[in-house]
Simulated scan of single mutants.
Amino acid sequence: MVHIKSNALNKDIQIDRLIANIKGSKKGPILVFFAGIHGNETAGVFALTNTLKTMSPADLSGSIYAIAGNLKALSKNQRYLEKDLNRLWTQADLDALVSKEELISEEKEQFEIYNLLKAIQKAHSEPIYFIDFHTTSSKTLPFITINDALINRKFSQQFPVPVVLGIEEYLKGPLLSYINQLGYVSLGFESGQHDELDAVLNCEAFIYLSLVFTKALDKDSVKDFQMHYYRLKHQSKNISEIFEITYLYKIKPQEHFKMLEGFKSFQAISKGTHLAQSNAQAIFSGYNARIFMPLYQTQGAEGFFIIKSIHPIFMKISEFIRNFKLDSLLVFLPGISWENKKQGVLSVNLKVTRFLAKQIFHIFGFRSQQLSKTHMLLYNRERVAKKALYKNEMWFNK
Rank of each mutant, 00 (worst) to 15 (best):
F324K: 15
K122M: 13
L217K: 06
K373Q: 15
K258W: 03
I242M: 11
L88P: 01
T273A: 09
S347V: 13
S105A: 10
G166T: 11
P294D: 12
N238C: 04
H124C: 01
S137I: 12
K258R: 14
K316I: 12
L60I: 10
H256Y: 14
I67T: 08
V32A: 03
L333Y: 06
F159G: 04
L389G: 06
G183P: 05
I239W: 02
E339G: 09
T353N: 12
Y379G: 07
L9M: 10
K53R: 12
T49D: 15
A276L: 01
N349R: 00
H194M: 12
F133I: 02
S75C: 02
I120P: 04
Q299P: 06
S285A: 05
A385M: 10
G69L: 01
E102K: 09
I179D: 14
G192Y: 08
I242N: 11
V200L: 13
N70P: 02
Q369M: 11
M293V: 05
G272H: 03
A276T: 01
E106N: 06
K258M: 11
L165G: 00
N50E: 15
N115S: 09
T145W: 10
Y129G: 05
T246E: 15
Y287E: 11
I120C: 03
H311G: 00
S368E: 15
G262M: 06
D84Y: 04
Q91K: 13
P253V: 12
I242P: 06
E109W: 01
L260N: 11
S137Q: 12
L48I: 11
I360G: 00
L88D: 03
R79H: 07
N40D: 15
I15S: 09
K342E: 13
G188Y: 00
F189Y: 04
L176T: 13
L182M: 12
P142R: 04
A96M: 07
L88C: 05
L371K: 11
M1S: 05
A96P: 06
P127A: 07
Q343L: 13
E112M: 05
T353G: 03
Q157R: 14
L60H: 07
G286P: 04
F320V: 11
E255W: 01
I291G: 05
I360R: 00
T90F: 01
N180K: 06
S56M: 12
L260P: 01
R322T: 14
N86M: 02
L330K: 07
E107P: 02
W395A: 06
I306D: 03
F213S: 01
H375A: 05
S177W: 09
M259N: 07
V45Q: 04
G300R: 02
K26R: 15
V200Q: 13
Y65Q: 02
L211W: 08
H362E: 14
T54A: 10
S177R: 11
I283T: 01
K387I: 14
R381D: 15
L187I: 07
G44T: 01
F284L: 06
T42A: 11
L60K: 05
V384Q: 09
G192K: 08
Q235D: 12
H38R: 13
Q158N: 13
V98M: 07
I207Y: 08
L260A: 03
F324C: 04
S177Y: 10
S265C: 05
A301G: 05
H3W: 10
A289L: 03
K387G: 00
Q158P: 04
Y296R: 03
L346V: 10
K258V: 03
L295E: 06
R153Y: 08
M293K: 03
